[in-house]
Each structure stands twice: as structure tokens, then as C-alpha cells.
Design a protein around this nucleic acid. Structure first.
Lengths: 186, 186
DNA sequence: CTCACTTTTTGACCTATGTCAAAGGAATTA
DNA sequence: TAATTCCTTTGACATAGGTCAAAAAGTGAG
């Protein structure tokens, strides 16, 4: 799914608007395992995932790598807080498979928000969607057993669940790799 | 903090705009323990809390009451998903103390979003802030001990933590009341 | 095909927190 | 101020999932 197709599914932009908006995004081809943002850096780009997948993660006190979110095809990928507030990122952002991304800078994004009321609306709606998903994850993590959490993961990221290392999923779900391995076995 | 003061802190509205916007909010005085929205109903209003506090909660499979979020002075209170998508609410919304609220309907809110680009921007920024807070809670719940989670609660809702029943806080933090009682004792 | 490296599985044991039950305290109402 | 109800604390015990360590299974470069 291209960025213009995606935008059109959220708000009815005209062709001219779409053309202008698309012109501010840069196509990037990124190889598997490449890091886009490091902990402590300011996240300068918002990425739209046309192909491939990515994740955000951080290193905890013990240096353990904890997945915070997965980003699949047709989603915006970023260290959201860092990008929008222009503050140091808590998270690393990396690509998990060879990917095609469309990136845009904070300045350009702000210009588009300011220029097009519809773009601002798109931003609001996409953020609400993200908020809803975050609440769903929270409920899963907070009140469900390890098995149920894994089922939630399969439902939320069906395309991703079988394509990334077990450890990434386990940390995303707040359990150890050993526990997830035992759950998967049945 | 009044609704107009609050809006001004987010986006620079003119006085005329503020006046127009404020005219779409209705002041409501609500008594302690009053329910604003029930599980299964569509949440028809977004509330701004001028005075008092509220919470959203739901009843789980065993009929246990689980607090989902607290809303203090100067915040928007709603069953967000239900309000914006106009779908049945998963949550109850109730007032925990005698409160002064400013309510607005979905239609009026949409009209204001459509009329004022700045309002749309305010909506986007408030949603991002909410998203950030939700992520913070998620990290607390997912990776911290019961003691640390309680500390997070004190930091996030200092005004609320000592004014609501222990059980509401315990369920918000994903632990039992007994555990929280033991933690509090030190 | 093989060596080196990464990822997953398995086993034994441990601990934070849950569950259940009952007793104290506080607060609201008559 | 007594009665009723709600809220908090305490104790004894149970368990899901964590930790640590090692074996097994994949994967990829040469």
C-alpha cells in the first residue's frame, strides 16, 4: 500500500493535494537489521512502511532488549514521542526485514499539518487509532495470562508473529522467551 | 482551570474563537459517585474537568471492577474510543468527587474541528499527550514490580492517589488490593 | 558439507504476587 | 450512638511465570 493510497483511506484528499503531500516524502530502501534511530537521539523522521516491517525497542537496566511495538505494512513507524516533541528517544527503531519506507521530517510534517486542515485531521485520526491499539495492548498485558497475551499478539500482528525471532515477541508481551516457547508448544 | 484557559495553553486561539468554542460547552455540576456512561452505551459527551475527578472502569468476566484511567482537574474525560468512533463503550465513566464539568457533544466537537483548523490541532496534540501517558503506564505495568508501579501512580496522579479508595488504585495498577495495602505499609 | 553462531527448547528450582478467609476501622444513615 | 455498610489490613497458603544452565535445532558463510 502506497502512502497516497493510505492517506486516501483516512481523509478524502484531492489528487493535487495528494501529489503535493507525497512530494514531501522520500522513498528509502532499507536493509534488514538496519537501525533508524538510537536511544538518546532525536527521531528526525516519521516513516510510512510500504514494504517490510520494523520494531521499536529499548535496553532496560540489565541491558536486556525489550520490544515496545511492531510496525507492519501500511503503518507509520517512528519513535512517536521523540519525533513529535523533538526530545531524545527512549527507543531504538530498527527494520526487521528489507523494507521500502517513505520518510518525512518534522518540519515538513508540521508544514503539511499547517497547510492542510485535512492533514491535521488525518494526524488526529491516526493518533487516536494508535491510542486505541495501545489501550488494547495494555489490557492484554495487565489482565491476561501469558497464553492469552500470545493470542492477542497473533490477532494484532498476524503478519508479523511468525516472521520475527521469538525473543522479540516475548519481550513485547512482557514474558520471557522460555515461557513463550513453552506456550507455543501448546 | 477553565476550558478556555486550558485551550489557550495548547494553541493560541483568539478571544473571539475562544468565546465561540466555549459557547458549545455546557457547564454541568455532578455529584460524587454519579455515573456518566455505562458499559455498552455510546458515550455522547466529552467532558472537561474543571473541578473534581473521575475514572473510567469496566467489569471483567468475574464481575470485578477494574479502573482503566483517572481523570483529574484540567483534563478531558471520556470513554475516548466510544466517543470518537460512536461505538458502544467498553467502560463505565464515573465521577469520584463532586465535580464541575464542561461537556460537548460529538456533533459539536466535529463542527468545531471542521470550523477551526486550530481546534483540530489541539485535538491532535491532546491525543498525542494521552498516547504518551498510556505508553508510560504500559511500561510501568509491564516491567515494574508492584512497588515501582505504585510509585509511578504517585508521580502520574499525585492529586488523586490519596483521595480515592485503595481498590480503585490497585485495579488500575494491575494488582490486588491486598498487595497494595502491604506495599503502602512499607 | 562443515564450522561458528544464533535461536529455541527443556529441566530444575525459586519468588512475587494472587487467593481465600476473617478481623479491624471508618464512614454514612436512622 | 447504634446499626449498617463499606473499606483496609492481616495471615496462611497456592501458583504462574521467572531465573539459571545446558542441550538441541536452525542458519549462513566459506
Amino acid at each position: 500500500m502506497s502512502i497516497t493510497e493510505f492517506l486516501s483511506t483516512i481523509v478524502p484528499f484531492t489528487d493535487d493535494e495528494l501529489k503535493d503531500i507525497a512530494s514531501h516524502f522520500n522513498k528509502e530502501t532499507v536493509l534488514k537489521n538496519q537501525t533508524l534511530v538510537r536511544q538518546g537521539e532525536i527521531c528526525n523522521s516519521l516513516y510510512f512502511v510500504e514494504k517490510g516491517m520494523g520494531r521499536s525497542y529499548y535496553l532496560n537496566e540489565n541491558g536486556k532488549d525489550i520490544t515496545q511495538w511492531f510496525f507492519g505494512v501500511g503503518k507509520f513507524m517512528s519513535s512517536v514521542d521523540s519525533f513529535f516533541q523533538q526530545t531524545p528517544s527512549i527507543y531504538y527503531l530498527e527494520v526487521l526485514q528489507d523494507a521500502t519506507l517513505y520518510s518525512i521530517s518534522k518540519e515538513d510534517m508540521d508544514r503539511l499539518f499547517a497547510k492542510y486542515h485535512k492533514m491535521e485531521k488525518m494526524g488526529r485520526l491516526v493518533t487516536i487509532e494508535m491510542l486505541t491499539k495501545m489501550v488494547n495492548k495494555l489490557n492484554a498485558i495487565q489482565f491476561q495470562t501469558a497464553k492469552e497475551r500470545y493470542d492477542y499478539m497473533l490477532a494484532e500482528f498476524p503478519d508479523i508473529a511468525y516472521q520475527v525471532p521469538l525473543g522479540h515477541i516475548a519481550s513485547y508481551l512482557g514474558m520471557t522467551q522460555e515461557t513463550l516457547s513453552r506456550i507455543r508448544k501448546g
